[in-house]
């Protein structure tokens, strides 16, 4: 007989393991979206674009 809090802890540990595994699989198949954000995509249409208007910095970490 398992204490309910142990069952919850075990379920959470399992979920974290699953997430970590899917992280590895995702990184291997699609590393591209972990790079800096596409800054230009966030600039409203009609706004002047170019080297002076866009600063390339690290964006999304996710």
């Amino acid at each position: 007989m398992c204490h309910p809090s142990w069952a919850r802890a075990r379920a959470e540990a399992q979920r974290l393991e699953d997430l970590a595994r899917s992280r590895g699989a995702h990184d291997r198949t699609d590393p591209g979206d972990t790079g800096p954000a596409d800054v230009e995509a966030f600039i409203p249409a009609g706004t002047a674009r170019g080297a002076g208007a866009v600063v390339t910095v690290g964006g999304s970490g996710g």
């Binding site: 974290l16 393991e17 997430l19 995702h26 996710g62």
Partner: peptide, 17 residues
């Protein structure tokens, strides 16, 4: 706390250059 640990496991939380 649960959200943070899940985001860490998923790889969407911390990052550095």
């Amino acid at each position: 706390r649960r959200t943070i640990t899940e985001m860490m496991a998923k790889g969407t939380y911390g990052w550095i250059l």
